[in-house]
């Protein structure tokens, strides 16, 4: 059968019930938002990736390119988001070559929701899909089980409520690009500072009708790395070893210059 293998599903359930720790996946315990403005649409994300309660990556990229003017923000399991957006990126390109037209956002939406629905939530990708195409600017959200939503603004991830609080209190229906950009960044910052699963920087991607999409990594960087007060370099020879000639164990090949 094509697709994912569920061979070990029952075994893993059994082990989990027995109390054996299950695998920790890197998750983008995340804040992602999207917001429309008069001439286009913006998506934004924080840059923290977590493995359990540990920060796995302080500056990961959660904004994925599906097509030149169609981008996607992902929350949930990092690998699923990377793979599902990679797959959709290929399919959109093939589809647009086949039809000889620019890819549309609804095409990506339909592909993604059908793919995710087929896997009944086992692919843990929660997406905010946005972009511009010949029919205008669009903003959608897609949940891992395959349901989709339309709206002028939306947020997803563990920090979605913090971001939503900002969006609900400040959004209005005639935002300019600059206002929408500031609103998205403020919503992500609410997630960064109030949700432990989100942190570090704000990435944004602006998709304006008739313009190329513009990704800005580190649009805001409110959490610079702390400076250490001491130097932790060790003097050469500090680490003791028992075999005095470890290099004897190596095979040394001289390569002629």
């Amino acid at each position: 059968m094509a697709g994912l293998s569920f061979d070990h599903y029952k075994r893993n359930q059994h082990l989990a019930a027995k109390g054996v720790a299950t695998q920790k996946f890197t998750s983008t315990g995340t804040t992602i938002v999207g917001c429309k403005f008069d001439k286009g649409v913006i998506i934004a994300a924080d840059t923290r990736a977590t493995a359990g309660m540990i920060v796995a990556d302080k500056n990961c990229a959660k904004l994925h390119r599906l097509a030149p003017t169609i981008w996607c923000a992902g929350a949930g399991t990092a690998a699923d988001n990377d793979k599902v957006t990679e797959l959709e990126s290929s399919n959109l390109e093939l589809h647009s070559l086949w039809t000889g037209r620019a890819p549309r956002v609804v095409t990506a939406l339909t592909h993604l929701k059908q793919h995710l629905y087929k896997y009944q939530g086992h692919i843990g990708a929660h997406l905010i899909l946005a972009g511009t195409d010949p029919t205008g600017a669009h903003l959608f959200s897609i949940h891992a089980h395959g349901s989709t939503d339309v709206g002028p603004y939306m947020s997803l991830g563990s920090g979605s409520l913090a971001a939503l609080a900002v969006l609900e209190s400040k959004w209005h229906d005639s935002l300019t690009k600059e206002e929408a950009l500031a609103l998205c960044a403020e919503a992500i910052e609410a997630g960064i500072f109030n949700d432990l699963g989100s942190g570090s920087n704000v990435d944004v991607c602006v998709m304006e009708i008739g313009e190329p999409a513009r990704l800005q990594r580190g649009f805001r960087m409110p959490n610079p790395k702390s400076v250490k007060s001491r130097n932790y370099k060790f003097v050469r020879g500090t680490t003791p070893f028992f075999d005095p000639e470890p290099q004897d164990a190596m095979v040394v090949d001289e390569v002629a210059a």
């Binding site: 977590t50 309660m53 540990i54 920060v55 302080k58 432990l196 699963g197 942190g199 790395k225 702390s226 400076v227 250490k228 007060s229 001491r230 932790y232």
Partner: peptide, 15 residues
């Protein structure tokens, strides 16, 4: 100094 650096590091990596 060790205490400050230890916590600076812990705050970087532990949520």
């Amino acid at each position: 100094q060790l205490v400050k650096d230890a916590f600076a590091g812990a705050a970087e990596r532990r949520i």
